[in-house]
């Protein structure tokens, strides 16, 4: 499915935020993530499901992505 990551259309098969974080190799620290404009604490990544067109914003320290 296609989702938006920082306004960029991205193809992913991941179903949850935790899976997406693993796919993107998000580091253990220095990351803040919002889905549909809502900040999601790391503890809730696993329970946060992604659907077609989801709008994900990632603020992360390491450049790129």
């Amino acid at each position: 499915m296609k989702i938006l990551i920082n306004n960029k259309q991205t193809e992913t098969e991941t179903k949850s935020l935790s899976e997406l974080a693993a796919e993107l190799n998000l580091p253990e620290r220095g990351v803040a993530v919002a889905v549909s404009n809502k900040m999601v604490p790391r503890t809730e990544w696993e329970g946060t499901l992604l659907t077609e067109g989801a709008n994900v914003v990632i603020i992360k320290a390491a450049c790129g992505g």
């Binding site: 580091p27 220095g30 803040a32 992360k60 320290a61 390491a62 450049c63």
Partner: peptide, 8 residues
């Protein structure tokens, strides 16, 4: 100073 692990 901070390296790459911190948000700026």
């Amino acid at each position: 100073i901070l390296g790459k692990d911190f948000i700026i």
